[in-house]
Design a protein around this nucleic acid. Structure first.
Lengths: 204, 204
DNA sequence: TCTATGTTTGACAGATGTGTCAAATATAGC
DNA sequence: GCTATATTTGACACATCTGTCAAACATAGA
């Protein structure tokens, strides 16, 4: 039957949404079956165990969040020119998957190795990121940008990009009177602020 | 018996550690009983339900993480002078409770209202924070510091401070070859970087 | 010592969740 | 229509977790 493949993807979509929103422990097979619109038993027919189902979507989720910097890295330009583009790309990836950071953070806590292993599967996405890293180190050595431990740069970039989405609810309540659209406005100007910040960090 | 009060605090300490590390759902009453060194039934004797036990420690946790800025706010100084002190205080509060951010983020996701309600209990801690907010707004109006939406400032500060602890494991693995002491070194210089960043944001 | 009260525990009941199985149903291809 | 295979489902077994209860145990104080 050709319904199988289609049903599998329907299940995966449903499971993705629920796993990401509630975390592994709080997600019940029954929830996923209900969301998909099938019986729990039927769900077991497609994915024998909860762990197997989780496994099936985990890689996808990682892939969806890794920023695609390949095009950017193929340009012949210095880091200072590339950085704003990378930031935009990264910001876009996060905004396409706003619930992902929470998921990743939790999974990192639940089973760190699992996440690391899943990332290695996406080596094609990783390569250009490593090239960016390399270019950063080279240009630091050349004095084109300020010398700084990479972890300082990366943790700052990720902090500024990811955290507001993690704390979305609290920030909206505390500063925007609960206005969700105002939060979107905030996010929209966030890119500029992040670029300013990163610029300060790397300017010699 | 006078053992009761002591036992309650023993339970609370154990429960705090486990709830914070594993989250509400993944924490089992049996875990807490074992960690405390009593039977699960005995645990129920002190705290009839899991929800009640959780409730008992929730407020404490919130209190522990709210930075104490009262002393700072009583000084007669401008925001530019106070900000570095506030940052240090906040950084210290977070480092005293490095697992708290993950806990708070998850609880925020699980039941936002609950967290907001718990915060109102600590109004004595909140007042000086609101005064800081007010002083920021006044000095922006006066042109002493650059005019910016408060959410931009606060989200930046919290992002830079909190996120590295959330992603501790990943950052250590990716940039420090898993060296935990190197991560402490990173955290130690982080305060300076955050002050630089915040300075850029508020300088007129 | 006896008693009242505080504390601990094992046993139980009920709820919820997972995974398996065999029977029922649908469907494709002959 | 018939058959082989795919899919769905209800029923079951098993495990885990929660909360209650009554009985056992400990201990302070009369």
């Amino acid at each position: 039957m050709e319904e199988a493949n289609n049903m599998e993807s329907r299940i995966i979509e449903a499971a993705k949404a629920i796993f990401v929103r509630k975390g592994y422990e709080a997600t019940k097979m029954g929830d996923i079956a209900a969301e998909t619109g099938i019986s729990r038993t039927s769900l077991h027919y497609y994915f024998r165990t909860k762990e197997l189902l989780f496994e099936a979507i985990f890689g996808q989720l990682i892939g969806a969040i890794l920023p695609n910097v390949e095009v950017i890295m193929n340009r012949d330009a210095c880091v200072l020119e590339k950085l704003p583009l990378v930031i935009d790309e990264y910001l876009a990836a996060i905004r396409r998957n706003p619930l992902f950071p929470l998921f990743a953070i939790n999974e990192l806590n639940r089973d760190p190795e699992h996440l690391f292993h899943a990332i290695t599967v996406h080596s094609n996405r990783i390569v250009p990121i490593l090239r960016l890293r390399e270019q950063l180190e080279v240009e630091m050595e050349m004095g084109l940008i300020r010398k700084r431990p990479l972890i300082d740069l990366v943790s700052t970039l990720i902090s500024l990009t990811v955290f507001p989405l993690l704390a979305r609810h609290a920030l909206t309540a505390a500063f925007l009177e609960g206005d969700r659209e105002a939060f979107e406005v905030f996010l929209n100007r966030r890119g500029l602020l992040i670029k300013e910040m990163m610029d300060v960090l790397v300017k010699p």
